[in-house]
Computed example of a mutant assay.
Amino acid sequence: MQLHLKTAVAQDYLQVFNAFNEQLFRELAPPFPKLKLLRFDGSEPGDVVEVELQTGVKSFRWTSLITDRSITSTEAYFIDQGQELPPPLRLWHHKHLVSKNGNGAIIHDIITYSTGAKALDLLLYPLMVLQFGMRKPIYKRVFGKV
C-alpha cells in the first residue's frame, strides 16, 4: 500500500532537505505512540535510525536503514527502509523527497508499507494518513507557510 503526502513550504528545497536532522526527527514524532530515540546516525546511505515505540503496555523496536540519497538541481531525497518493524508491519519504505517549487519547496512523504494482508493494509491506511498528516503543520511552522 502506498500513500503520498505533500506539504508546500516557503524555504528553498536544499535548506529544507538539509534540515532533516535529529532535531527535526524529534519534532515530527507523533504524540502516540511515544518514541524513544535510541540511535540517529543521519540521512546518508548506511546510516541507521532506531526507535522504541512505547504504547504504555508494550514497547516495540523500529529500526530503519538509509538505503539511498540523491541531490539534483530540482529535488533531493533520502530513503529509509525498515529493517526491524513493529507488528503488524512487514515492509516499510519511506522516501523523504523535497522538490523545488518556485522560491519554496514541496515536502513529499512517500510511504510504501505492507502487513502481508491486503485487508489489514487497507485498515491501517487512515491511521497512516493521520500519523503522517500530523507532520504538515510542523513542516509549515519550521519552514514557513506558503
Rank of each mutant, 00 (worst) to 15 (best):
T115G: 15
A105N: 10
Q2T: 10
P31I: 11
Y113H: 07
D68T: 02
N18M: 03
G42A: 12
L14Q: 14
L127N: 02
V49W: 10
L65Y: 01
G56P: 07
R39N: 11
P87D: 04
H96E: 08
A76L: 03
N18A: 07
M134L: 15
T55I: 10
A29N: 08
I71L: 08
D121K: 11
R39K: 14
D80H: 06
T115P: 14
L123Q: 10
Y113G: 08
D121Q: 12
Q81E: 09
L123V: 15
F17P: 07
N18C: 04
K36M: 09
G102C: 12
K140A: 00
T63E: 06
Q81W: 00
T112H: 14
L5S: 00
F20P: 10
Y77I: 02
A8N: 10
R26E: 12
A117L: 15
L85W: 06
K118V: 06
V142K: 14
P31L: 13
N18L: 09
L97Q: 11
R69M: 07
T55Q: 12
F60L: 04
Q15M: 04
L85T: 11
L3S: 02
R69A: 03
K58C: 02
M128K: 01
H4S: 07
I71K: 01
I138Q: 04
Y77G: 01
Y77W: 06
V9H: 06
I110H: 13
L37R: 08
P33H: 08
L3W: 01
V16T: 12
R26V: 14
L120R: 11
R69G: 01
L85M: 09
V146C: 00
K95S: 03
K6T: 04
L122Y: 04
F40R: 09
G116S: 10
L37I: 13
L89Y: 11
D47G: 02
N101Y: 12
E84I: 13
D68C: 00
H108N: 15
K95Y: 03
E52Q: 14
L35F: 13
T67F: 03
Y13P: 08
K100W: 10
T112P: 05
A19M: 09
V142S: 05
G116K: 10
R69H: 05
W92Q: 09
D47P: 07
V16M: 04
F40T: 12
L123S: 11
A10F: 02
Q11W: 08
L123I: 14
T63G: 00
L123W: 11
L38V: 14
A8L: 06
D68P: 00
K36Y: 04
E22W: 06
F132S: 00
K34R: 15
Y139R: 00
V16H: 08
M134S: 02
M134I: 00
L35N: 09
V129N: 05
G42K: 13
E84D: 06
M1I: 01
A117N: 15
G102W: 09
S64R: 05
K136R: 12
L123E: 06
L122G: 07
T7G: 01
P86R: 00
P137V: 01
M1Y: 05
K136T: 12
I110V: 14
M128L: 13
W92M: 10
N101V: 01
D121T: 04
